[in-house]
Design a protein around this nucleic acid. Structure first.
Lengths: 208, 208, 208, 208
DNA sequence: AATGAATGAGGCTTCATTCAT
DNA sequence: GATGAATGAAGCCTCATTCAT
């Protein structure tokens, strides 16, 4: 499943190090001008080595995009997992999870933005792999919701679980994608609180 | 504000006709392979005229993207406005609005997808203009919410209005962006009902 | 069978004209430095147009090689056919044919040399097509031999016909391939006469 | 005259061994894809050592081609010399020589093919040296012819000697270069016999 | 107004060669 | 002596744009 990008260089340590440089450089450039407007030479330069060296560690420009997306997902997931790893109980578990997720997205705004904007340019197979990561993310959130439901602190029928998970995920993306609007009106804290309030109580309309 | 694209041709009728052909052709191609991977030659061919003629009606490839985005927004807004133009009252007004919006998005899935994925490649000024359209859309939704609130059928404090509007908008996008996941699990009708339920009542947790 | 090279340009007249320029320029360069050491830009320049224009008339560098080989074969064959088209009778028919063939090869030395040295770099399919031309050439010579045999002026059993045709063909190539040796020792006339003598009488060894 | 390729390594035994590996690997690759399409990296790998090591034993890629051509010539000549070293007398001496030569070429088809196709890519000086080997080969054959003539078993005037030698040589090459045609129609034995027959008697035309 | 041939800057990638370890 | 990572010149090709007809 994990499509490992072939390299002409043998030393795994070196591969890791160089690819980290490369991803870091590429992200910076992709954020600035997007994947298509960034040249391989620019990536090499920004990464601190020559174009020849770049191609010792990848086969094509698309490989770089893949490495970038993979790296970003990995980091988002790791950070999220780290924050979810608490012993919160009750409704707090969900609240903290949402807050943690929004915080992670906030901290990695540019990266997340790039990934969601450029992933579509991945070759089919690589795209599938990356989308799979998105599924995993969804499942992590679903898991939290289900646990809260099991504890009885929220009432949510089965179909809703998946939907709510997606909603939360997308509200995270929204924080970056619509930042030019949203971040003008809300601090991250306010945004988080409001979304949680909305999530738990809805718009609280008169009972029908 | 409206950045009108200059044309070498004078006859406005003709301009309108040719640009419609052009947008139609371009959308088809952008959906298939994205903006960057589509060539101007292909667009000309798909539009039914020559590359020379294409450049009689635009100055640059980016102009086409602008026309495309503009056309899509225009259509989404028009359709939505058409559907909102009812005399629904009470909570129904909001429900119907959301349903109508989702339906419009559903009917124009590919176009919406393309627009949100490629708009980032617009030159700054054009991007601003397009984002302005997004603001207008948000305001249309906000308006509905505010009216419901005024009627007293929902209780929503001021800060929430904007947020909820954004949420609804983004839940529409989600229907296209995450279709590979969401549309596997929900019909449009179910999706709509569930999102409305969620919007109004939240996950309905125990009162604290 | 005839693999016609696709062109972006429509006008057949123009295609013919530009490709003639191209082939002429390419032959000059291939003679000088070989196919692999000649760049597409050099070919464009030598042909009198830009690299962009070059690629309006071909898809790849290999296409040029194909056009070159095809053009050379075509010319050799046409010239040969022209010379063979006489009403010589008897042994003279064969003698004149060989002389004519050698003359053609002599006149097109560089081209012939290039073709035989570089054809191996053609993509498979194109190579097959070119080799087919070689078969046709052989058959033209075989034809002459067979006619002489039918007239009874030479005695040659069936198996020999093909072999002798090949021999003659190859003796033509030899005049170009080994010119650094052969042309030092023989004039074309001497070479022709000697080869004909050898062809007809062998080394004339004592009967066994 | 013999252009010895400089090496950074001193030990002559080692040089010999490594170069043998190298030539063997290179020939295999050249046969498969030609000189220009074979990379030095591939040669190193096929030879069983690293690219760094490769360059300890040569200065440039062309050196490899030179070593390859040299090795092939050497082997052809040695094998031929071995076969010529008999005490055949009379016309048999020539017949056996031709047969032996054809057999050697047959046994080394691929190598011979590569050499004649790629030698043109040698730098000038190296090319001269290799061509000199071709001269030597010719002289070996000339020698046999002259001896037969001296014995009186064939009648061949002076100018013919060189020509016949070249013819024989080229008929050997022909066995490999035109194999796609010739080997379809003749076994090596038949080919040999027919060529000898042709060589000795010509097409045996009616006396004029 | 329409056409499409011409242009050339610039993108991606390869590969012979070097050199520090 | 052996290794293989690093280099960058240079090659092939694309494509947005122009302009003569």
């Amino acid at each position: 499943m994990k499509k490992s990008v072939p390299s002409l260089v043998k030393d795994p340590e070196l591969i890791k190090k160089r690819r980290e440089q490369m991803v870091k450089g590429a992200v910076r450039l992709f954020i600035e001008k997007g994947f298509h407007r960034t040249t391989t030479r620019e990536i090499a330069k920004e990464s601190g080595f020559s174009i020849g060296t770049l191609y010792e560690y990848i086969r094509s420009k698309e490989d770089i995009l893949y490495l970038v997306c993979d790296a970003i997902y990995e980091e988002v997931r790791d950070r999220l997992a780290y924050h979810l790893d608490t012993d919160n109980k009750g409704i707090d578990r969900l609240k903290k999870a949402v807050a943690a997720y929004f915080q992670v997205i906030h901290d990695m705004q540019d990266e997340v933005l790039v990934m969601y904007q450029e992933a579509k340019s991945l070759p089919k197979e690589a795209l599938s792999y990356v989308l799979q990561k998105e599924v995993e993310m969804t499942e992590m959130i679903e898991q939290v919701i289900r646990e809260c439901a099991k504890e009885g602190v929220i009432h949510v029928h089965d179909a809703q679980v998946k939907l709510v998970a997606h909603n939360i995920l997308v509200q995270g993306h929204m924080w970056t994608f619509r930042r030019w609007q949203i971040q003008k009106h809300f601090s991250l804290e306010d945004y988080t609180n409001l979304q949680i309030e909305q999530l738990l109580q809805g718009v609280n309309h008169r009972l029908m």
